[in-house]
Simulated scan of single mutants.
Amino acid sequence: MEKPNPPAAQQRFRYYDIVMASFVAVLLLSNVIGAAKLSTVAGFTFGAGILFFPISYVIGDVLTEVYGYAKARRVIWVGFAAMIFMAFMSWAVVAMPPAASWDGQGAYESVFGQVPRIVAASIIAFWAGEFVNSYVLARMKVWTKGKALWSRTIGSTVFGQAVDSAIFYPIAFLGVWETRDVLIVMVSNWLLKVLWEAALTPVTYIVVGKLKRAEGAEVFDTDTDFSPFATSKPSE
């Protein structure tokens, strides 16, 4: 008689750590490399990081779909801690007095010397948006009985990125930009991220399919504690 798979919290997954590392790497690099540059393509101006940051949401969808909410929750906290350390390290390195023979301080400050309120907005928005994204996807997986993956990946992004944008732009720019501009950028960037997620749906299908086969796992969060602060339990 074939034994049933153990709960997700008890399983040893082959690729979970790799997916976690990929998530954190994309998260940090999109904030460090892309966030400081504005680009204009075909008359449309946007932050360059927006092209790559949504990939972290795709990986987040993969985490929840393959490994379940409890495993995704752990990765979100790891990413949250990594962002805090990145912000502290950026501040510390910029604040250190440059050597007299080094003339790169100005360039360093322009790239890494971010405004504290923008850093805080980014960290808070990421934390809230990712948890909403993971929660919605996990719930929808149970409702759809594991079918129509596209509806879960796009649906969770609609809500997760809405929360992310609704937190980030007001905290970062309200009072600095005109209120109208904040609202326009907030909505346009939310829409662009959702469209980007939809465009990457075929890639998500491929990655999810391969990981599920490799891990031999199909996790449904029927009895999961969805609190962001809960610790993983065997029942999860």
Rank of each mutant, 00 (worst) to 15 (best):
W102I: 15
Y67C: 01
V66W: 00
M96G: 10
T45W: 03
A35I: 12
Q105L: 11
V62I: 09
M96L: 06
S39V: 13
A95E: 08
T40I: 03
N31H: 12
A25V: 03
V26K: 00
F52K: 02
W102K: 09
L63W: 00
V115A: 11
M96Q: 05
V58Y: 14
V78F: 11
A92Y: 13
A121W: 13
P97I: 07
I55T: 05
E109L: 15
D103A: 05
G79D: 00
G43Y: 03
L38I: 08
I55R: 14
L28G: 02
V32P: 07
G49V: 14
A25N: 11
S90V: 11
G106N: 14
F85S: 08
V62M: 12
S56G: 10
V66I: 04
K37G: 10
I76L: 12
F52C: 09
F80H: 13
V115I: 12
Y57C: 06
G60V: 01
V78R: 08
A87G: 11
V24S: 04
G106L: 02
I33E: 15
F85K: 12
V119R: 02
G49E: 10
A99K: 06
R73W: 01
I55V: 12
A72L: 01
D61K: 15
L29I: 03
A92R: 07
A95R: 07
T40P: 05
R74F: 06
M86Q: 04
G106T: 04
V24F: 13
F80Y: 07
F112A: 13
E109P: 14
E65T: 00
V26M: 01
S90C: 07
I33H: 13
Y69G: 00
G104V: 08
A100S: 12
V24M: 13
G79E: 01
G79H: 00
V93M: 14
P116M: 07
A95L: 15
E65P: 01
A121Q: 10
F23W: 07
V32F: 14
V41M: 13
L51C: 09
A121M: 12
P98C: 04
I55D: 12
A36I: 06
V93F: 08
S56D: 11
L29K: 07
G79V: 00
A36M: 05
W77Q: 03
F44K: 08
Y67S: 00
T64K: 10
A72C: 04
A92L: 12
M86E: 03
A72W: 00
T40L: 08
F53D: 03
I59L: 09
G43F: 02
A35G: 12
W77V: 07
Y108L: 15
A70N: 09
A42D: 11
F53Q: 02
A72V: 00
V94C: 10
P98S: 13
G43W: 01
L29H: 02
G43I: 02
V58N: 14
M86D: 15
V111S: 10
F80N: 05
V93N: 04
Q105A: 06
M86C: 07
M86T: 10
M86I: 05
F80V: 03
A121L: 07
K71F: 02
F112K: 03
T45M: 02
F88I: 15
Y67N: 00
S90D: 15
F53H: 02
Q114F: 11
V62S: 01
S56H: 10
S90G: 10
P97F: 06
A99S: 06
S39I: 14
V119I: 06
I50W: 08
A87Q: 12
V58K: 04
L38Y: 11
